[in-house]
Structures are given as structure tokens and as C-alpha cells.
Design a protein around this nucleic acid. Structure first.
Length: 575
DNA sequence: ATGCAGCACGCCCTCTGCTGGGGAGAC
DNA sequence: AGTCTCCCCAGCAGAGGGCGTGCTGCAT
């Protein structure tokens, strides 16, 4: 039943309630098929705008219906009210009016599917029949004692081919009569499933009498795609938005029309723009890429996409060899590479960027915002790439491999550094600006400077003298000067030595002190070593003195003398 | 309906900088 | 032999550049 293909929130149905009577004005005429349509002959686009404008006005508001009763004093108001819809309430009526085609490969496409949006709009009193039927080919419903003021069909395809199927007709039955048997409905279920597979918005419209004795009738509109959509928290069937938007437009009726989208803040005074915009809230993508079967909403998008397959890049940069698929890419490229125009400027620092998204990312470094939370640890990043990179620390993934030693790394930069340090001949070196130290990595040089060249408030004292420094490097260099230094100078002569113990022995020359006495002959010595040599030479019978023999003349010596002669090697002979 | 310019989002890359473990030499 | 120091090195995160691609709004 094409007429039921009204995209409405699947969880809701509309209640039509007779409220009041209004004078009639006949603006419709009966056509051959018995369906009454508007008399005016607006263009399809205008009609579409009108449809959009008035479509289901506001499903949350009352919809006033002008009666067609001959009684001028009476008027009927029908209200469309939103009410909770449950899956149990779903009933398939008839999809027979859908022209479903099974294409090659089994893909089912809606032909002229145009789920038409049928709506009832308040309008001037019209001379209509006394009943309303919402019918498809089989005239599923008829509504008696009611008058339809205007019936519009949304979607061009509906207007074109399905009009007769979707148009409302006037019938004479009392109340709403369901003409279709459930058995027939069930026979149509496979078609429903086929329709769902097309991802089109098929809706089911069902009208039923209200309480017994009441004038109320109920029009239940349900989304045939409900089952798959009900769990989607955000998706809003677009045609509902059309209906809402129609309400907004209608509020300005009488003045210049403004079309307001209730999904977003979009407004437009032009129907075509509004309609174009509303398509952005649908998932309708009818342009198929024959190379990858991806679908697109417009021919332009499809063409750009196909260009990515074919490599066609019609927009060439005049300043370099780069070429791009779209003009926007070229403009951006020129800003990055040639004009350096950076329209997006940070209000907190001097940063400016070519793209707004870059500024947005940059601002997070000021605000500290970290929207991307790691699911395995407490880390959160400021952009998606960092989180993705961080996740490698959990997965252990190391996608970068050194082509020389095949070592693997989690980051490309790490691998690059590795390659440079390990396998490159022209290894970059970093000279310390404060000393002669050369360090391969800049970061290590930074550590070097921090440790050795940073000012220290605490005094760094030399271990050899009273010198004080405030920089480790200066202290170390100073202490090196003490190495090999004859810091101990004799007060009585020119003797100097490196160690205090040497000076102690030397001073005994001037004082005559000889504290080391031989136990065998009572001879005294200034140094312990001298006493030791004396004892071995004169009192130790087992002592065998070493003889150093000259390799040239065979003459023997008791001590090895450091010689400037080459070829003379120490050699010990036991005599 | 189409073309176009701008926008938005995502992906990947580079550069940068800090950290901590390991090895070697000095002390 | 133990300790300390310093450089080497890999790991990891921060920031930003550049481009691919699809979407949007407007004009035609």
C-alpha cells in the first residue's frame, strides 16, 4: 500500500479525532479514478513544497480538517496525535502498490517507491465528498462522514506514477473499514521483507474506529522498518522531520514562507533548498559506483569518488606538480604549500591553521580536553590518532620494521631514529654548546646539559681544594686539574709532590727524623721502604737480588732503568 | 539537477621531547 | 668489587602538517 508509506516515527501512531465542524469549500475535483485531488495546478515542485509545508503539520498538534458536510454550520476537526506504538500494534496492510523490482543479483530496488507522504491539511473549506478514504489500489480504507480538505502526495515519484494508488478517495462507508483481510496481509509479508532490504522507509497506515459510539477514528502510521530501527537511538526517520518542518513552515503561513528543519537549525525561504536539505537527513543514496558498489547521494559525489578509482585529478596546482580530485583540495593544498594562508587563528596563542579542525585540535592543548579514552587504561588522548597509536602499547603491535636488521617498532619515528643511529654512515651528531661533548641524540644532549651545565644553587665543593662551583661540569673539570698535580710543596726546598705521604717522608730530610730502626743492626731510616730494603740486603740470607742484563753488552744491573734506548727490554737473571 | 566552495572528519606522517633501562668507564 | 656517572637506546606521548573523502549549502 503505497499510501501507507509515510515515514513517521515508528514508535508512534497518529490518532485522528473529530473535533469540530467547519464550512466546506470545494477545491477538489473528482478524477477518473474517483480520487479527489486538488484543483489547482501547481508545478510538482510547488506542490511538493506545499506538501512539505503541510505534511502532517505537526504530529503533536491538532490537525484541523474542514468538513465536507453539506451542513454549512458544521465543521469537523480531526486531530493527529502522537501515541506510543508497540510492535504488537504493527500490522502490515498492503505493499502491493509498491512496484518492487528484483534486479539482477537479487537486489531488490524500489521502483517509484516513493513512499509517498500523504497528509491531511487544514485548508479552505472545500466541497468534498462526505467521507475520506485512504486507499491504495484496493481501497483499503474509507472514511465516512468526514471531509478531506487537501491531500497531498510527497515525493515526485509518487506524484508521477503512484498517484492513483496513493491518492485519497472519498467513500461512503461509515467509519473506517478495513477491507483487507489479515490473510491477505500475511501473504504480503515476503514483500515487506524485500522492501526492508531496500532500506527504504516503508510505512504502514491503518485506520480504525475509536471507541464504540465515539466519533473518534484512529489512524495508525507505523514504520515497516521499525523492527530494525527501534534500537537505534539516534536515527530519526526523515519524513517525520519533513512533517515537523512542514509545521514550522505553516506557522508562517500568510507571510513569506520560511522552511525550518527540526532536525537541525537549517531554515530556508526556498522550497528547493529546503527539499535539498531534507534529503540530507535521509539515507537515500541511489548513485552506485560500478567499481566498488559504494553508493552516493548525488552524481557529483559519485563522480568524485570514481575519480579516486581512476586516478583522475582535474585540478592541478600551478605552482607544483600536485593535482587533486576536487577544487577544495587544490585550494587547501595551495594554502598549505604556497600561500601559507592560515585563516583559523587561536585566541590564546599565536597558532594559526589552514583548517578549522586543526585549530579545534590545537585548542585542546589549551583546554586540556581529552575526549578519546583508552578502554584498557586511564590514558586519554586529544585526538583519535594518538589513541590509536597508544593502543599499540596494549596490543603489542609493531608495524614498523627496520629494513636492515628487521627490528620492529611501534612507531615510525622510533624506527627512523634506530635506522639513523645504527645503520647510517652520516650519523648526525649534536655538539654540546657548553663543552666539547658530542652526543648522537638531541634529547640526550638535553639531558647532558641538564645534568652537567645547569646552574645549581647549592655549592659544589672541590674534593681537593676549597674551590666552590655551581655547575657540575665546571666542578668535574676543576677536579681533573688536581690529577697529576704536585700540590704538596716543601717549605724548606723546591721539592713538590702529589701525595701528602710523600711530603711527610721528605720533611724528615730537613728535620733529621729517622723513625724506622733495624732490629738487627739498630740502623735508622726515614722511610719504612728503606728499612725493608736494608734488612733484605744485609740480614736476609734467602734474599736473591734481581739482575737486569743489557741485551747489547750483557752487563748486569741491580735496578731497571727506564731507558730511552729502543730495544732494551727488562730481563731478570737469577745469579 | 548540477557545480562549486567550504566544511568536517579521518588517517597518516613527521618532528619533538621525556623517560627509564642498559652498558661501559671512572672512581 | 661496588658505586657512580654518562651516553646509548627504545618506548611512548604531544603537537602539528598534509591530504583523502564525503557532506553541506548555495547559486545556477
Amino acid at each position: 500500500m503505497a499510501a501507507t508509506e509515510i515515514s513517521v516515527l515508528s514508535e508512534q501512531f497518529t490518532k485522528i479525532k473529530e473535533l469540530e465542524l467547519m464550512p466546506e469549500k470545494g477545491l477538489k475535483e473528482e478524477e477518473e479514478d474517483g480520487v479527489y485531488r486538488e484543483k489547482d495546478h501547481r508545478s510538482p515542485s510547488e506542490l511538493e513544497a506545499e506538501c512539505t509545508a503541510g505534511a502532517l503539520q505537526d504530529l503533536e498538534e491538532e490537525l484541523e480538517l474542514v468538513p465536507v458536510s453539506s451542513e454549512e454550520t458544521e465543521k469537523h476537526i480531526l486531530t493527529l496525535q502522537m501515541a506510543p506504538f508497540t510492535s504488537e500494534a504493527f500490522e502490515l496492510q498492503d505493499l502491493s502498490s509498491l512496484s518492487l523490482q528484483q534486479q539482477e543479483g537479487g537486489q531488490v530496488m524500489g521502483q517509484q517507491t516513493g513512499p509517498g507522504l500523504l497528509w491531511l491539511e487544514e485548508g479552505p473549506q472545500q466541497s468534498l465528498q462526505q467521507s475520506l478514504a485512504i486507499s491504495d489500489q484496493e481501497e483499503l480504507y474509507s472514511l465516512q462522514e468526514m471531509e478531506v480538505l487537501q491531500l497531498h502526495l510527497l515525493e515526485d515519484n509518487v506524484m508521477a506514477g503512484e498517484e492513483s494508488k496513493l491518492a485519497a478517495s472519498l467513500a461512503e462507508s461509515a467509519g473506517l473499514t478495513k477491507l483487507q483481510e489479515r490473510q491477505e496481509k500475511e501473504q504480503l509479508l515476503p514483500e515487506r521483507r524485500l522492501a526492508e532490504r531496500t532500506k527504504e522507509q516503508f510505512l504502514h497506515l491503518e485506520a480504525m474506529p475509536g471507541d464504540k459510539g465515539s466519533d473518534e477514528i484512529f489512524l495508525k502510521i507505523s514504520d515497516l522498518n521499525m523492527e530494525e530501527q527501534k534500537d537505534q537511538p539516534i536515527a530519526v526517520p526523515a519524513n517525520v522531520e519533513k512533517a515537523k518542518s512542514a509545521k514550522n513552515q505553516r506557522q508562517t503561513k500568510g507571510a513569506k514562507r520560511t522552511f525550518c528543519c527540526d532536525v537541525c537549525m537549517f531554515t530556508s525561504s526556498r522550497m528547493s533548498s529546503f527539499h535539498h536539505h531534507m534529503k540530507t537527513h535521509t539515507n537515500e543514496k541511489t548513485h552506485l559506483c560500478h567499481l566498488c558498489l559504494k553508493t552516493f547521494r548525488t552524481v557529483t559525489l559519485l563522480r568524485n569518488h570514481v575519480n579516486t578509482h581512476t586516478g583522475t585529478r582535474p585540478y592541478k596546482c600551478s605552482d607544483c606538480s600536485m593535482a587533486f580530485v576536487t577544487s577544495g583540495e587544490l585550494v587547501r593544498h595551495r594554502r598549505y604549500k604556497h600561500t601559507h594562508e592560515k585563516p583559523f587563528k587561536c585566541s590564546m596563542c599565536k597558532y594559526a591553521s589552514v583548517e578549522a579542525s586543526k585549530l579545534k585540535r590545537h585548542v585542546r592543548s589549551h583546554t586540556g580536553e581529552r575526549p578519546f579514552q583508552c578502554c584498557e587504561c586511564s590514558y586519554a588522548s586529544r585526538d583519535t590518532y594518538k589513541l590509536k597509536r597508544h593502543m599499540r602499547t596494549h596490543s603489542g603491535e609493531k608495524p614498523y620494521e627496520c629494513h636492515v636488521c628487521h627490528a620492529r617498532f611501534s612507531q615510525s619515528g622510533t624506527m627512523k631514529t634506530h635506522t639513523q643511529q645504527k645503520h647510517s654512515e652520516d650519523l648526525p651528531k649534536h655538539q654540546c654548546p657548553h663543552c666539547a661533548t658530542i652526543i648522537t641524540r638531541k634529547s640526550d644532549l638535553r639531558v647532558h646539559i641538564r645534568n652537567l651545565h645547569t646552574y645549581s644553587a647549592a655549592e659544589l665543593k672541590c674534593r681537593y681544594c676549597s674551590a666552590v662551583f655551581h655547575e657540575r661540569y665546571a666542578l668535574i673539570q676543576h677536579q681533573k686539574t688536581h690529577k697529576n698535580e704536585k700540590r704538596f710543596k716543601c717549605e724548606h726546598c723546591s721539592y713538590a709532590c702529589k701525595q701528602a705521604r710523600y711530603m711527610t717522608s721528605h720533611i724528615r730530610i730537613h728535620t733529621g727524623e729517622k723513625p724506622f730502626t733495624c732490629l738487627s743492626c739498630n740502623k735508622c731510616f726515614r722511610q719504612k721502604q728503606l728499612l725493608k730494603v736494608h734488612f733484605r740486603k744485609y740480614h736476609d740470607a734467602s734474599f736473591i737480588p734481581a739482575v737486569y742484563k743489557c741485551t747489547k753488552c750483557d752487563k748486569g744491573f741491580s735496578r731497571w732503568i727506564t731507558s730511552k734506548w729502543s730495544g732494551l727490554k727488562p730481563q731478570t737473571f737469577v745469579i
